[in-house]
Design a protein around this nucleic acid. Sequence first.
DNA 1: CTCGTAGTTTGACAGATGTCGTAGTACGGC
DNA 2: GCCGTACTACGACATCTGTCAAACTACGAG
Lengths: 120, 120
Amino acid sequence: MTTDQDCPGLLPEPTVAELRLEAVLHALADPTRLRIVADLAAVGGDELNCLAFELPVTKSTLTHHFRVLREAGLIRQHRRGTSKMNTLRAADLSARFPGLLDAVLVAAGPCFTTPKPAAR
Amino acid sequence: MTTDQDCPGLLPEPTVAELRLEAVLHALADPTRLRIVADLAAVGGDELNCLAFELPVTKSTLTHHFRVLREAGLIRQHRRGTSKMNTLRAADLSARFPGLLDAVLVAAGPCFTTPKPAAR
DNA sequence: CTCGTAGTTTGACAGATGTCGTAGTACGGC
DNA sequence: GCCGTACTACGACATCTGTCAAACTACGAG
């Protein structure tokens, strides 16, 4: 019961059907996580490793936040070498909660008014 | 400058400019509060007293949740007699975070797909 | 004035949450 | 094989959160 492919290194995540609104909202309600999501949206679908974010927290805390985001279904993570790449599950979220992510991103950062033009 | 009018019995609430995204998301992330918001949206702008909601919590807890919602700017409360009337600040929210409330309501209740047509 | 209804306040409490530091694991480069 | 980088796991901790019960206030009806 996960979108889990055989794709090696992909970490477990909820399927589109498993996405829970409360979990998504809760994940987005934290400033650090909201910032991560906004940053991911800003790069328009590209991958970012966990340390690519300049956040005022330690690595442990970052790991924690990334897990919350992944378990809520907001991001996808898979290992690549020693790094872990993160992507926003924009399409999955739109499929399950139409308009929600867009509205949050617009509200979060007036700069990212054009979050996901056409994949990368 | 809160939206506070001289309207007697109106409880303090944030102005549109004071609405904080995190606070709104946090307020919506709780099932009880989400339910309250969805119920308010369902009646299309009418007022509901606090006990009009059939929720599995005590009055104290309800008071707590209503305060969180009001302080986050999601609802407006004003006293009327011994009751306290609650209304959703749909217009204010749309002004500050366009599409957000709508997206959440659609995501929350498939039943309320037409949340605020034009009052009921 | 007395009573009942509606809601508030306070205190308590268990559980979740965000944070850190330290130690540990996994992988690539040498 | 050894080391450094990137991330994880674990434990600790303070704070926050949702919940309740009991006592209190506010208002209207009678």
